[in-house]
Design a protein around this nucleic acid. Structure first.
Lengths: 331, 331
DNA sequence: CTGAAAGCGCTTACAG
DNA sequence: CTGAAAGCGCTTACAG
């Protein structure tokens, strides 16, 4: 900027004005500045401008998700990005992998880069550290996890009700021996969905059979293996409830491999591409990932803009999409 | 930092040393600095440190992909992130949407934030602007697209050979009337794959039928619709070749809806979750997205570290995974 | 409408 | 081992 000012024969402040599009600059000077900037290959340095500016904004937000590569996270990411771009914000992202140490490191790295706000999707259980960061000026929003105490807004589907609806749906279709395949119970969403499973069973006067309950499934292969195991149990369950995305896909693959897809019913939490292309179509509890990402971003922006109201829990609706696998005629 | 120094009763430079873990500080002073930092809730500001440091590194890289929400982009993103974390780098990302204006805006936004390097997956066709940015100190790597002229390293699968292998596979299985369903031809990868399709047909002495060729399919629904249309044509093709991910998924859904999945063969470019759970399993040309992301990041780091050798094209291998849909017995 | 001075939070280059 | 001065690229607060 200094060099541009010298070449254009103006003060450095005038260059600043031109670069920032301040209108009160004589057109002739502005033209000289533009020419000089062009000639020198000048690139504005947002990082420096941010340092001095009063508002302290980097126009960058952070997004920490389970895994930027998994379908749920990726869909949320995209929705957040779209909303961010309307404000000229860029998104720094990271994958938590349910690893609390990694989460703290990533959060620290983002805060050191002075993100204006931070959206965190499932992760650590203890979020009291967030309070100090909020006081230091960083806005926070949680997705899919309710921090306790409620230190910041949280956008989440009602996981317990959703899981319960899924299992009740299976029961209504005449299924009684319903297996549960789920993620690590320490994950809040997994625990909530497991609760929903048990509540629906209890409401129908049934009981869970521990042989048909499998936790800690983190990958597609875990899920496929667990499904295979439960499907060869004796007695075999007559339905599967899967607590998430990858588990549902793994279980579906196992059902097809054992040619049981028309015998054992299945409802999964989270929709996925191709769920309606399979035969039978896969019945799911769908979350509106678009809306979740959008609403989370909007809440974050409100906080960044100074909203100091009490943190709230915003529930997003879920939808049961019946496609066949959950409505197979009971044997 | 100033406040910390005052509270600890030391010089500001000593605080800097402690924060950066420089060992030559008297333990007693370091302890006082730590205590003061703790008490004041001090957070290091990487943005300021970067401004002054000689190396000019923000320890942040940019990643521009087609859409952070689509499976291919998301998988590459994750691989890049993993590689970046080994160096303590964070990733700023953006979705291009095949929109050149958006691409330039996003690139500008990343450069204004002084990313150390930029990985760009498909986008604009004219990358001569990159040269000026390289001279200004930003490293570049391309994924899935060969810039012309070759201004930077490019990591890509041999799309023409891959598509050609797919179509040859169908021909070997006795198929002759092979339809092409593909993305916008202005996209380099789509064009290359279409070339491969035509080459394989020509090699077998066949010709393409314009009724069976469909370009410009951008979404799952586009693809489903186009597949439906071509499957109701007369005469109907006896096989489909799909140029990418979403197109394959859409076409598969259409085949299943019309109950033609055992009559019309299909090979798709790009692997996807569930491809092996469907019946028949979907035969694909798989790219190693993990390797593509990893290699791209490694090349970028090499450039950031000063590698000035001539830009190279690095071809990643593809693999034909036969799962059934491409090997259906010809009628 | 324009520009010289001061300062954002930090590190470099030095002197002690 | 420690710290006072200068400066990274920019904007604020001011004077002209």
């Amino acid at each position: 900027m200094h060099d541009v000012a010298r070449l254009a024969g103006v003060g450095i402040k005038t260059v600043s004005r031109v670069v920032n599009g301040v209108p009160t600059v004589a057109p002739e000077l502005a033209a000289r500045v533009h020419a000089a900037a062009e000639q020198l290959g000048y690139r504005p340095n947002l990082t420096a401008s941010n340092l001095r500016r009063g508002d302290r904004r980097t126009n960058t937000i952070g997004l920490l998700v389970e895994d930027v590569g998994n379908p749920f996270s990726a869909a949320v990411h995209r929705a957040v990005e779209d909303e961010a771009l309307t404000r000229g914000l860029m998104v720094l992202s990271g994958s938590l992998e349910e690893n609390p140490a990694r989460e703290r490191d990533l959060a620290r790295a983002l805060i050191a880069r002075r993100v204006d706000g931070l959206i965190i999707a499932p992760g650590d259980t203890d979020y009291r550290w967030v309070v100090a960061e909020q006081q230091a000026g960083t806005a926070f929003v949680f997705i899919d996890r309710i921090p306790s105490p409620l230190v910041a807004d949280a956008i989440a589907t009602d996981n317990t009700a959703g899981a319960s609806a899924a299992v009740a749906h299976l029961i209504k279709a005449g299924r009684r021996r319903i297996a549960y395949l789920g993620d690590d119970l320490r994950i809040q969403t997994a625990a909530a969905r497991y609760d929903g499973y048990r509540q629906a069973l209890a409401a129908a006067g049934g009981n869970e059979d521990p042989h048909w309950v499998s936790h800690g499934l983190r990958t597609l292969d875990d899920a496929r293996e667990a499904a295979r195991a439960v499907l060869t149990a004796d007695p075999r369950p007559d339905a599967l409830f899967c607590s998430q995305n990858l588990v549902t896909i793994g279980a579906t693959a196992a059902l097809h491999q054992q040619q049981l897809e028309f015998d054992v019913a299945l409802v999964g939490f989270d929709d996925f591409l191709l769920a309606d292309a399979l035969r039978p179509g896969v019945t799911v509890i769908a979350q509106d990932t678009q809306a979740i990402g959008r609403v989370a971003a909007q809440r974050l922006f409100a906080r960044m803009d100074g909203d100091r109201s009490a943190p709230q829990i915003i529930r997003q609706p879920f939808e049961l999409i019946a496609r066949g696998s959950g409505e197979l005629p009971a044997p």
